[in-house]
Computed example of a mutant assay.
Amino acid sequence: MDSNKEETPKKKPAALNIVSTKINHKGFGAGSIDLSNVSSLIIDGDEAYLDMGALHAKSAVEKRIRFSTNKEDVPNGRKCWIVWVAVDRTPEGTYYAGVTACEMLVDTEARRGWKILADHVNRMDAAMKRKIMVDNLDDQEKALLRKALVDHNEEWWDRSTDELKAALA
């Protein structure tokens, strides 16, 4: 046995992605959406947490839930949010560039939910285009989101736009 074997790398904790260093090309996949600078936070009740599974509709709150586009199908659903967060980099450093929130209802016990997939896709796209769209959050949800962003990286928050800070004030 070789004693110079490298240790297996430990799994990295969940973190907001930083802008990709990939070089753009014009071959296969050109024009496809690059999600490497987008992350998803979930606001569920009184907590906000990172859940990258939302990028593929497989967050913890979405698993084993059958979604409908009809709100009446989920009379006992609790309101949850997927918040798309895009980060960007300037010469000063990384910052939260785009933040958008999408509502959904989830009834875990009945395994039913409501969301409008087109809205989720459009808002993810808006976050990637550096838009701030969080007017649909109430004051408590805005406070949870602000705290989650600051706790994740206060320097990124400090470098973020005044528009984002005002929207989450």
Rank of each mutant, 00 (worst) to 15 (best):
92 E>D: 12
26 K>Q: 13
12 K>E: 12
149 L>I: 08
49 Y>T: 01
145 L>D: 01
52 M>G: 01
115 K>T: 06
1 M>E: 12
132 I>Q: 02
118 A>S: 13
168 L>A: 03
56 H>E: 13
29 G>T: 06
50 L>I: 13
137 L>D: 11
115 K>W: 10
59 S>D: 14
69 T>W: 09
4 N>I: 10
79 K>N: 06
165 K>E: 08
48 A>C: 15
16 L>V: 11
67 F>R: 08
142 K>S: 07
57 A>L: 13
130 R>S: 08
21 T>E: 15
3 S>E: 15
89 R>W: 08
19 V>C: 05
76 N>S: 10
4 N>W: 05
51 D>Q: 02
18 I>R: 03
115 K>C: 05
12 K>G: 02
91 P>M: 08
124 M>C: 02
46 D>M: 07
139 D>S: 14
143 A>V: 03
78 R>M: 05
1 M>K: 09
72 E>R: 11
121 V>T: 09
16 L>K: 00
108 T>V: 12
163 E>L: 08
68 S>V: 11
139 D>Y: 08
14 A>H: 05
16 L>H: 03
74 V>D: 01
15 A>W: 01
134 V>D: 02
120 H>M: 06
39 S>I: 07
162 D>K: 10
111 R>V: 11
89 R>Q: 15
156 W>C: 05
139 D>G: 07
14 A>L: 13
42 I>R: 00
153 N>L: 02
93 G>Y: 12
164 L>K: 10
130 R>T: 03
28 F>V: 13
58 K>M: 13
106 V>I: 13
102 C>S: 15
108 T>G: 11
44 D>Q: 11
85 V>H: 00
135 D>E: 15
119 D>W: 06
90 T>N: 13
77 G>V: 04
21 T>N: 14
69 T>K: 15
90 T>P: 03
136 N>F: 03
97 A>T: 01
59 S>I: 06
53 G>T: 00
120 H>Q: 10
114 W>G: 04
22 K>S: 14
88 D>C: 09
122 N>C: 04
168 L>Q: 03
140 Q>D: 10
109 E>Q: 13
110 A>H: 01
112 R>Q: 15
93 G>F: 09
113 G>D: 05
9 P>S: 07
129 K>Q: 14
75 P>V: 05
4 N>S: 14
46 D>E: 14
109 E>P: 02
128 M>Y: 04
152 H>I: 02
96 Y>P: 02
